[in-house]
Design a protein around this nucleic acid. Structure first.
Lengths: 194, 194, 194, 194
DNA sequence: CCTTAAGCGAGACGGTACGTCCGGTCTTAGT
DNA sequence: ACTAAGACCGGACGTACCGTCTCGCTTAAGG
């Protein structure tokens, strides 16, 4: 969103944007997207109102950037060489749940905002949803090719079910903990006959 | 929500409440929860502002009642006597998807609202979420007891996965159609060896 | 400016308008028209901003009404029965000068404002300028008919000169005192040969 | 106002100041002092904002200089050798009225500005008011010494009345035309018995 | 030739005030 | 008691200017 045309004029204060984003992130995390006003963000950031509007055209724009600035490659898969896909998935989910436990409320309010702002929704999907979805899909594909899952498994649908399960719990304020991660994994991978 | 204390005074206009709910329902369906103001609802309903506040304490209360007035027993299971649990589930999901296709945007915005309003969230869960969840759970339990699913199946988790899957697709604007219903069902019920 | 259509609705708070006008009048007197902000007026009046805008559409409207609410019959001519027109004029001017000494700065800033706001200008003339001008004209007419002035005197022009003289002194911050009143009168009335 | 310290550095662009003054003068004439913003002046002048502030410390400074650059010796008295003071005065007033007819609105808005800016007021008086006042005074003095006016005439007061009369008409949007000039003169000079 | 010093267009900066909008409460008169 | 109407306070909104500041560049004059 930030436009940095090269030519003349005083350069933008490099500390302003981070300060604003930090303020936005903190306030949204503390109070939820809807309960944060532009005025409060600029006050906390110690910045003039126009300095915010010069960079972002709306609260949605700002908050999206504040939360998902870095293109979404959130947790990574590397270093899981010798593990089974099942255990990789379980660890991945546990990690995701941990991070949501920290800022789940903020994420909830972003999901909420996405419903009434199509542009926000698109960016949110691109920066947050799809990367995580892709992650699960990769793990499942690996599981499939290594025979942990039957070749007939419908990867897309199972991905939606896994991803959906924790959205569902997130949005209905039900616990997102390690036991749930384990239960999800168990439901996906066929039970081993003892 | 409506309080109908017995004693004296002019009785409430019986047409006001329905008019307000109809207006609310229509506007929310058309424009989404966040983009509808109280002022607009009362204007469309042709009613004084206070007439709304006398009956509901907030937009959330009103909209919840407008959408989920009847205690949630939405689709029913009766009349599915001879069918397999699998086909019952598929039909149930197809029906849910059909109804969401009609008013999915409104539901999305209600889910959104639930994120910033705990009370709304609670009512929404009670009136909308849990009944549907319970429905799925019942079908799966039946499937279990009739050996369509292995007895080891984790009904709670699978319920969350099914329910979550369509929330997820709903909130991310991905298609909710019959093929997806079929795919969900197929992923839950072990594939029949041909 | 205040519109008091008869029908329904909560009546306007009768104390608000006077409070706002009092605040406006006080602040303009203290600080000058240009240095008073709407925000300050409503803060001092202890009133919501919209409560001001509901009654007046601009600071100009408000201030005009605050200063010249009562149709302009400022000083009166009655009770000067037996006096010469000359002495009546001198007394009238002395009175005007006294009142300007009290709130001359405010008047100056109103004259100023009138220059950039034609509507303000019109109302200002009607409520402030013309009544005073008319006063002088009446006195001069009386003087004429009673032979204190030659019948050939151009009343309109002399009125403009008298009135103009104290505007001129007012706007250029030159003293407006009794000696000047006397000098004006002496210049208008032919010097009596000693 | 322009300071031209001797030493090094790039010399000021000689075209900037005239361009700025021209823009200021044009805009103030078109729209009135209050309705012209610094931003607009520099945009019209095709100049950077700082280039204006380097030369003038405020809009008031600039506009004063733009309008009254040449020390005030506006119309001159020379070449009126053989005429009566009365006709000289009439011609002087007619000239002043003509020039005001051209840019009266701008002058009005300057008078307005002078009310809220004491420094502006001082300069305005020095550059515009006093020279014209002095002019009238000289003519009247000459009239006095040549017996066109009685020696008892109060030159200062009459000057204020003349000058005030056209300020008054100027500020109240009443016509400033030759008949009024004639009427003023007639009221000052004792009517000649036919 | 190269430094120094200032002017230049451009535009960001922290502020202040604007006029509008809405939410939730209240106060009327009328039914 | 209830209605329709609408005023009330509070507070956020996005915009417009203000006067200052900083950038990279240009333009001389003087060493």
């Amino acid at each position: 969103m930030t436009n940095d045309n090269k030519p003349g004029g005083r350069p933008r204060d490099e500390t302003s944007a981070p300060a604003i984003k930090a303020a936005a992130r903190r306030l949204v995390t503390e109070k939820g997207y809807e309960n944060v006003s532009i005025s409060e963000i600029v006050r906390v950031a110690g910045v003039a109102r126009q300095t915010l509007y010069r960079r972002w055209s709306s609260k949605a724009d700002l908050v999206l950037e504040a939360f998902f600035e870095t293109a979404g490659e959130p947790p990574t898969l590397s270093g899981n060489a010798g593990l089974t896909a099942r255990s990789v998935l379980e660890k991945f989910l546990a990690d995701v749940f941990d991070s949501l436990a920290r800022e789940g409320d903020a994420i909830s309010s972003l999901i909420a905002c996405a419903q009434s702002d199509p542009e926000f929704c698109e960016t949110f999907k691109e920066k947050f949803v799809f990367p995580r979805e892709q992650m699960v899909r990769q793990i499942l594909n690996k599981a499939c090719s290594e025979r942990e899952l039957p070749p007939s498994a419908d990867i897309d649908t199972v991905t939606a079910m896994i991803h959906g399960a924790f959205w569902y719990r997130l949005l209905t304020n039900q616990p997102l903990d390690r036991p749930f991660a384990a239960a999800l994994v168990s439901s996906v991978f066929p039970t081993r006959p003892t």
